[in-house]
Amino acid sequence: MNTYTFIMEFRGGTYISQINANNLKEGLIDWCKNLDVSEIKYLGEKNKGELLSIIDSEIPTPINTVINVWHFSIGIKAGFLMVNIVKTDVT
């Protein structure tokens, strides 16, 4: 299992969480499913559902010159999300 750290910027807030997953794609989907909308201003269950419907086809872009770091951006009705993902060594 790998640990992935997700750093999301959304409507003026920064939200950070970690997910354990076998690979990046699995981590991305698990991260979205586990978002706690009560902690994210302006992102309710309806908007989370919209995000879940989009996230499966999302392919994070690797960041040049650094390893194990990716980025993606998604627009939903509630606003624009920018997310950085870091494969995190927890040892």
Rank of each mutant, 00 (worst) to 15 (best):
T65Y: 11
D30M: 07
S53T: 10
G13Q: 06
G13I: 15
K41Y: 10
W31A: 00
K25E: 15
F10I: 07
S38W: 07
E39K: 12
K48R: 15
K33H: 13
L43F: 11
G13W: 04
E39H: 07
I40A: 04
L43H: 02
N23A: 06
N20V: 12
L35M: 13
M8K: 01
E45G: 01
G49Q: 13
E39S: 07
I40C: 05
K46R: 10
E9G: 00
P62G: 01
Y15H: 10
C32P: 03
D30Y: 07
S57I: 04
L35H: 00
L52P: 05
E39V: 06
I63H: 02
S53K: 07
E39Q: 12
G12M: 04
E9Y: 10
S53D: 14
G12F: 11
N68W: 02
I55C: 04
F6T: 01
T14P: 03
E26D: 11
I29F: 13
K33P: 03
A21M: 11
T14R: 05
K25H: 14
G12Q: 05
E26T: 13
L51R: 03
D56M: 01
G44Q: 08
I7A: 01
F10D: 01
T14Y: 06
P62N: 00
E58Y: 02
I54R: 04
